[in-house]
């Protein structure tokens, strides 16, 4: 009994050593800094316009009026649909095309393979701000302004996704693919039936990154659309502040509703994100 108590004490002493306290404190502060805006967003969404500048975290008289107002507004539901449609389409496109190109670069030997890969990677160095003008000119000349396609086309395939998928496909042993080749499958079926199921963590990570990135996209959709019908959720929400006064409570309510799908996606699939990023040897 005494021996056990001594062991337990020793274990406790190990657990509360100073280094650990500092690490936990820093993590706690970091967590607090990150969660405070989120809490204020939900808090403000439950306040009336008169209470917005009352900085108490718990509203004095919480109300769901803002939610009723925002959800009752047909435009908001349209923006929600636009964002969902665009994010899902771009995600599906990225998963399909990035994987196909990543697989080809990882598993086929052909002249210029390395050069193509470098060319794709080099586009990662060009900031979006530099690309916006050419994109806009292209959209304008091809009649893509104010269309779903106009919003979606720059993100339908990404260098990052191609790189991520290539790294993962390199880890798939060739024997699996050759076994399928001997079994008589064509190259597309081998990719779809054999290689893709083996990189599910990477596909999940790519899907989550792409979905979240497109769900929150603001800059390009703002530029390429002038029709309110085609606004995405972030652009639509920002329009609450574009008129005579800034309606913070409505902005926060819209943002709170808009956050829910991203939180759900993250909570449901976070283990894949971590696994995907760790396995790819990348920083998120």
């Amino acid at each position: 009994m005494t021996a056990i108590t001594t062991t337990e004490l020793a274990a406790n002493r190990r657990d509360i050593r100073p280094g650990r306290i500092i690490v936990w404190s820093l993590l706690f502060i970091g967590g607090l800094i990150m969660i405070t805006p989120l809490l204020y967003m939900f808090s403000t969404s439950l306040k009336t316009s008169a209470q917005v500048y009352d900085l108490r975290l718990v509203p004095a008289a919480p109300t769901l009026d803002n939610y009723i107002k925002v959800l009752g507004d047909g435009r908001f539901m349209q923006w929600f649909f636009n964002s969902t449609f665009i994010a899902l389409t771009v995600t599906a496109s990225n998963v399909f095309f990035d994987s196909l190109v990543g697989y080809t670069l990882a598993k086929f030997q052909f002249r210029g393979r390395y050069f193509i890969f470098l060319a794709i990677l080099s586009t990662l160095m060009i900031p979006t701000e530099m690309l916006v003008i050419p994109w806009y000119l292209m959209s304008s000349q091809l009649g893509w302004l104010n269309s779903y396609w106009g919003i979606m086309f720059p993100g339908m395939m990404t260098a990052f996704g191609t790189f991520l998928m290539k790294q993962f496909f390199e880890g798939v042993p060739n024997d699996f693919l050759e076994a399928a080749r001997v079994d008589g499958l064509n190259e597309f079926t081998i990719w779809w039936k054999i290689a893709m199921p083996m990189v599910v963590p990477a596909i999940s990570a790519l899907a989550i990154f792409t979905f979240l990135g497109n769900w929150t996209a603001f800059f390009w959709p703002l530029i390429v659309t002038t029709s309110k019908e085609l606004y995405t959720l972030p652009v639509g929400i920002s329009s609450f502040s574009a008129e005579s006064s800034i309606q913070w409570e409505l902005i926060m309510t819209g943002a709170a509703i808009g956050t829910i799908p991203t939180l759900l996606v993250f909570l449901l699939l976070q283990r894949y994100i971590v696994r995907g990023v760790m396995l790819a040897g990348l920083k998120g």
Binding site: P173, D175, A179, D183, M198
Partner: peptide, 20 residues
């Protein structure tokens, strides 16, 4: 001829059985 047209079957060193 492609592998599938030769009607041969192959067993690999690491088995190559599909995990999914």
């Amino acid at each position: 001829r492609a592998p599938k047209q030769r009607n041969i079957a192959m067993v690999f060193q690491n088995y190559a059985i599909y995990p999914h």
